[in-house]
């Protein structure tokens, strides 16, 4: 095997399907999707009016999240509308992050020449995944703003010709909105990727003892990052639907 630490920033390509590259992050994403979908499929079949413990827990979480979203967005109807997107971001990202250190992830792989290529890599440590998520979140936020306020009112948030100060505020708004693509994707990628590197380095210096508690901490970080991504999406939706006249 290799001596020392190799940090690979990009997900490694395993093969290709119909000309589309298939990376280890993509394979893991498919695997996790299959597990997640199977899980919710069986959960759905067990749903009952008188809930079991699991269902009661899920319902409690749903109602809590819906209440919180309703308070934030100021309307239960909007909360119900955006709940699926926000909840899916949280569930999918949290699921990926919690299984990031599952045995086999990063350790099962192929030898290509003298290089070891892991077969599975947490999708959140691949910028393609986090950027895709950021783009989805960004597009949802902007489209929601346009649909809710109308194109002219929404554009008025960014293009303001009434005063020089207003003009620069508008420019800053545009920049900060576009910047969300970068902050969203790199925040998640950076936190989770850095966590993996830290665990790797710890395993190099003090194997057997140090990695396990660090993994626990990184799993906590993974949960926090999932919450952050979902909550920020919620807040930005709220900002987008706010009337500019009310906002200032």
């Amino acid at each position: 095997m290799h001596s020392g630490i190799t940090v690979v920033l990009a997900a490694e390509r395993i093969g290709s399907v119909f000309g589309f590259p298939v990376t280890n992050a993509l394979i893991m994403a498919w695997l996790l999707m299959a597990i997640l979908i199977a899980g919710v499929y069986f959960f759905r079949r067990s749903l009952a009016i008188v809930p079991g413990k699991l269902q009661a827990g899920v319902e409690w979480a749903f109602e809590g999240a819906l209440d919180y979203m309703g308070e934030t967005l100021g309307s239960d109807e909007l909360a119900r509308k955006f709940f699926p997107l926000v909840a899916t971001i949280f569930i999918f990202v949290a699921f990926i992050n919690e299984l990031e250190f599952f045995p086999g992830v990063g350790s099962l792989g192929l030898m290509r020449g003298t290089d070891f290529i892991p077969l599975l890599r947490a999708p959140t440590t691949d910028l393609n995944f986090t950027l895709a998520l950021a783009i989805i979140s960004f597009l949802t936020i902007e489209v929601t703003g346009v649909v809710t306020l109308g194109i002219f009112k929404y554009a008025g948030k960014y293009v303001n010709l009434k005063s020089p100060v207003g003009f620069f505020v508008g420019l800053l708004e545009i920049l900060s909105n576009l910047g969300r693509l970068i902050t969203f994707s790199f925040r998640l990628f950076g936190n989770i990727f850095a966590g993996e590197v830290v665990v790797m380095v710890a395993g190099y210096f003090l194997p057997y003892f140090l990695p396990a508690p660090l993994m626990g901490f990184e799993m906590f970080i993974g949960l926090v990052q999932a919450v952050v991504f979902a909550i920020l999406t919620l807040f930005f939706i709220k900002l987008a639907i706010m009337d500019p006249a009310e906002a200032h």
Binding site: A11, L26, M33, V40, F43, P84, F92, I135
Partner: peptide, 21 residues
């Protein structure tokens, strides 16, 4: 890969919508 991951998210969204939400 961006498109593939976006599609993955879409599939998860639809599956969770149908089976969970």
């Amino acid at each position: 890969l961006l498109i593939a991951q976006a599609v993955n998210f879409g599939i998860v969204l639809i599956a969770l919508w149908y089976f969970l939400y």
